[in-house]
Design a protein around this nucleic acid. Structure first.
Lengths: 168, 168
DNA sequence: GTATTAAGTCAGCATTATTGACTTTATAAG
DNA sequence: CTTATAAAGTCAATAATGCTGACTTAATAC
């Protein structure tokens, strides 16, 4: 019998349920949970002419009121051309207000209008309700763990980008 | 002062960090984590002619070897016509083997070929690596919580569907 | 023998993303 | 002051993934 076999009776991997199958289960869980997570807004958005892209724009404009177009592009990780169509619709439909920057007039600061705030409410209420129910059912400790793992799954790049925006 | 105010000094919501802002943070976390979660496979798939839809098909055919086309449609929650394009490509490219059912000859049982198994490996290795790192960094208790909350976020319908397939 | 089921197909359309090539306006650098 | 850079916006073409509707083929069920 080798040294290796004698000195590693309980591996770190075993403690963490890190068998390939357990990891695959986690991966699936992530997929299905995300599907549930987006299902409420998706259903609501069907009543409008909007899709997920609009939802995301509305969400982040609400979270970071007055953010610049470039910041939004940075957060979403999409191209200017991709956002353009969506943002133009939202501005045309009077959900988003695009104000010329006070310091630098090239910049546009984005805000939700009252109409935009109303839609944001409708969307996030549904999503919050689901999260609240899940949190309740799972309990406070589970929520702590949930958040911790999600943070670690995120790209480091994304984490930094978020930090940058939040600091501003 | 009303009874209600006196008897509820610390609410269940407060214990669970259920303020609207905390919930919104959880929602964002979910969005960004999912983005990170899919980034590795997405990068790999760019080297092929495939996308996320192909990945999902490959994943579930691997997880439930020999599953029927209808089962796969059920799991993915998409239409037959949507899957068709993807599945045909995978069969044409010799990644998936579609065998006529032994009991009911109308049915097709789906399997990965050696080539399909190789791609599945490449994709899931990357994803597992990320999950393993996140699990390690967060610790066993956090992982427990993570899984518990994700289960609760899922649609009840989805949970039942999964159960149905797993039992088979 | 007819109805139903499983699978597969074709056509057309919508959403969301991409790249490339520009324009306009405003600020920064020389 | 002129030129370079930067922020925003636009047009066109393309791709991936989903949808609905309308079918066909083959096999099983009644």
């Amino acid at each position: 019998m080798s040294d290796r076999n004698r000195t590693k009776p309980i591996s770190m991997d075993a403690m963490l349920f890190l068998t390939d199958d357990q990891l695959l289960q986690g991966i699936e869980l992530m997929y299905f949970a995300y599907k549930g997570f987006t299902s409420d807004p998706d259903r609501i958005l069907q009543n409008y002419t909007y899709g997920r892209a609009h939802h995301r724009a509305i969400h982040f404009i609400n979270r970071h009121k007055g953010l610049k177009v470039n910041d939004l592009l940075d957060i979403l990780g999409i191209t200017k051309q991709s956002l353009n169509r969506v943002l133009r619709q939202l501005v045309d439909d009077d959900l988003v207000d695009s104000r010329i920057g006070t310091k630098d007039k090239r910049e546009r600061n984005l805000f939700l209008t009252d109409k935009g705030i109303a839609l944001e409410r409708e969307l996030s209420d549904a999503q919050r309700k689901r999260m609240r129910a899940a949190y309740r059912a799972a309990g406070p400790e589970a929520v702590q763990g949930f958040r911790l793992v999600l943070e670690k799954i995120m790209d480091g790049e994304t984490r930094q980008r978020l930090q940058r925006i939040t600091d501003t």
